[in-house]
C-alpha cells in the first residue's frame, strides 16, 4: 500500500501528484486517453492555444537525431474558440487538471486569450509559452528578451486569478535571470526547459532537413542541459520549478526533482511510449516507499553538495 503523500503545491496550484504531460506532446488528451487513465495524472498541459487557429509549418516538421528529436510544428492548433467548445468538455470528463498553454505574438493577444479562458472552471492554471523556437513572431523573440518576459507576466497576472506558469527558453545565457523576472511580476512557477534550437542538413542535397530550417531539440539528448538549467534556477530564485527535458523513466523524474523541480513534465517519451506517465508515477511511488519518503515534495531540491 502506498504511504507516500504525492501531492505537490506549485504556487497556488495543488496537484495530486507531480507527473504532468507536457504541452505539444499529448494534443488535447483524446488520443493519449486510449493508453493511460488521465485520472491518475497530475495534470495535462494542452497543446499551445492561440487566439486564432494556426495551420502550422509545412513538412518536414520532425526528424530523429541522436537520442533526440527536432521538431518545427509551428504551433498548429485549433484556436481558442474551438478549444473551449470541443476540447475542454472532453478533458473535464476525464477529471484531469488542465493547464492551458498559451502562445501569442503580441502582449495583447496573451491577455485576450487569458481573459477568454478566465471563467472556464476546467482550467486550473495557465502555462505561458514565451519560448517557442518555431514561429516567426512571438516565440523566442519574447523568450530571449527579459523585459518582454517580465511585461508579459505582468499583463497576464493583471488579467487572471488562476496560477501562472512561465515556460522558459534554454536558449539564453542565464535562465535564472528570466525566472527572476517572471517571479518579480507575479508568476506562480516556471517550467524549464522548452526545446533547444537545433538544425540538420542533408549532405546530398545540402538542404536543411526541416522546412523551417531550425527546430526545437528534445528527448534524452537534452536531459543534462535541462537538469543544469533547473538546478541554476533553484539555486538562485525562490520560485517553484516544473522540470522538463528528456525524461524517459522514473529515475529521470527523481533526478529532476532532486535538482530542484517541484513537478515534472513528460514530453517526447509520450510519442514512443504513450503509457510512460503511469509507469513513471508507479516508479516514483515505489521509490518513495522503499526510501521511507513520506512527502514526495521533500525530494525537491534535495541535492547534496559538499
Amino acid at each position: 500500500m502506498s504511504k507516500v503523500n504525492l501531492n505537490v503545491k506549485i504556487g497556488n496550484l495543488t496537484l495530486r501528484n507531480p507527473i504532468m504531460l507536457a504541452s505539444g506532446t499529448v494534443g488535447y488528451g483524446n488520443e493519449i486517453s486510449e493508453f493511460i487513465d488521465l485520472k491518475k495524472i497530475g495534470a495535462i498541459v494542452t497543446k499551445s492555444i492561440s487566439l486564432k487557429p494556426r495551420k502550422g509549418n509545412k513538412p518536414q516538421r520532425i526528424m530523429e537525431t541522436a537520442a533526440g528529436m527536432l521538431n518545427a510544428i509551428g504551433l498548429a492548433n485549433v484556436g481558442i474558440e474551438k478549444f473551449i467548445k470541443e476540447k475542454i468538455p472532453f478533458l473535464k470528463k476525464h477529471d484531469v487538471p488542465i493547464i492551458c498553454n498559451i502562445a501569442a505574438s503580441t502582449i495583447e493577444e496573451y491577455v485576450e486569450c487569458v481573459s477568454m479562458l478566465e471563467h472556464e472552471d476546467g482550467i486550473h492554471a495557465f502555462e505561458i509559452n514565451v519560448s517557442c523556437p518555431n514561429v516567426k513572431e512571438g516565440g523566442l523573440q519574447f523568450g530571449n528578451d527579459i523585459k518582454m518576459v517580465g511585461k508579459i507576466t505582468e499583463k497576464v497576472r493583471a488579467n487572471t486569478t488562476k496560477p501562472i506558469i512561465i515556460k522558459l527558453s534554454p536558449n539564453v545565457s542565464y535562465i535564472s535571470d528570466f525566472a527572476q523576472a517572471a517571479k518579480k511580476e507575479g508568476a506562480d512557477a516556471v517550467s524549464a526547459i522548452n526545446t533547444l534550437v537545433g538544425t540538420a542538413f542533408n549532405i546530398k542535397t545540402r538542404k536543411p532537413k526541416l522546412y523551417n530550417i531550425t527546430g526545437g531539440l528534445s528527448g534524452p539528448a537534452i536531459k543534462p542541459i535541462a537538469l543544469a538549467k533547473v538546478f541554476e534556477i533553484h539555486r538562485k530564485v525562490d520560485i517553484p520549478i516544473i522540470g522538463i527535458g528528456g525524461i524517459m523513466n522514473w529515475q529521470d523524474a527523481v533526478e529532476f526533482m532532486i535538482a530542484g523541480s517541484s513537478a515534472v513534465q513528460l514530453g517526447t517519451v509520450n510519442f514512443i511510449d504513450p503509457t510512460a506517465a503511469e509507469k513513471v508515477l508507479k516508479g516514483l511511488t515505489d521509490y518513495c516507499n522503499e526510501n521511507n519518503i513520506e512527502q514526495v515534495s521533500s525530494i525537491t531540491g534535495s541535492y547534496q553538495l559538499d
Binding site: 506532446t25 488520443e31 495551420k55 518536414q60
Partner: peptide, 30 residues
C-alpha cells in the same frame, strides 16, 4: 509516407495538404 514519431496523431509531425481546404493539413498517421 512521411517521417513520423508517434503514429497516432499527437505529435503532429506528419502533415499532408488537404485538397478540400487550403487551411487544413491532414495527418498521414491518423
Amino acid at each position: 509516407e512521411c517521417t513520423m514519431a508517434c503514429g497516432f496523431g499527437i505529435c503532429q509531425g506528419c502533415p499532408i495538404q488537404s485538397s478540400a481546404d487550403e487551411d487544413k493539413y491532414l495527418l498521414v498517421c491518423k
